[in-house]
Amino acid sequence: MLSSASTSSRFMPPQATEVAQNVDTLYGFLLVISLISCVLVIGGLIYFAVKYRRHTENDKTPYISHNATLEFLWSFIPFLLFMASFVWGWIVYHQLRTAPTDALEVMVRGQKWNWTFAYKNGRTSASEMFVPVGQNVRLIMGSSDVIHSFYIPAFRTKQDVVPGRYTSLWFNAEKEGDYQVFCAEYCGDQHSGMQAKIHVVSREKFEDWLGNDPYKDLPLVEVGRKVYTSRCVACHTLTDQKAVGPGWKGVFGRKEKLEGGSDITVDENYVRESILDPNAKVVLGFPRGVMPTFAGQLSEQEISGAIEFIKSLK
């Protein structure tokens, strides 16, 4: 049991931070204690059950009402174990919650159903973030709609992301690699699709990425494709199949019936409006209020790219 805790294994996600190792060591301790307790209780149960099965209907049983010493021991020993676990848990929790002051700060925004990241130099990214290996990183997180929770299993940490306030979380990834981010607080239809990747890379690679314009020299339609894979993929397919929202293939130029009964042709202006003010004109058969607004989140270049990309899907 301990071995499964101290090294990464099939039963735990990889350990990418020092805190993760501390969490796992504590978890290993708890597992061993739990196992011993279960063996004692369940073993005793089975042993007594077999040994003292009824032989005749007139079996006499002794009258044992209580035993003060025994009762004290099995109250006090668990109490000591609980307190030890509590204090150890406290220490680990303190590490998890106390961010070093020299941390690289990144703003994180949760919105149904994706994560976006903003760095101090203005670099933004969606559904993926880059951090240098061995660097203290502090995430300052807010939500635009409902409560989400930022969860990185490999770092053994998570924090709810609440509308109307900031919460924060820190880590220091010791190993390069790509680490999974989940949303752990239920947030609606695409909750399980609200994922991101943290790419832990060397400092040079990180600086490169940070200074890089992600859309440099890209044709508009490729900008749109990037926007799609980071922001739109949770709800829109590239076929003509409806998911949460309409599939994009062939949608451009189509005539659609709106909720109020009027018709509309899907043109550049309608797509733009749907991105910035999704509830202005909802096509019949789609739920109102599900799509969040992307006003202020997508640049003009990205919006034009998205329109161009939709156009290209015939």
């Binding site: 969490v23 504590l26 597992l31 209780v41 676990s85 848990g89």
Partner: peptide, 27 residues
């Protein structure tokens, strides 16, 4: 009941240990 409740109980203690719960919460 005793068998299953014992397992439910000790895992409850694991979840009550706050440093470990941060990982297990909502999983």
């Amino acid at each position: 009941f005793i068998f299953l409740f014992t397992i439910g109980g000790v895992t409850g203690i694991i979840l009550a240990v706050i440093g470990v719960d941060v990982h297990f919460h909502d999983t």
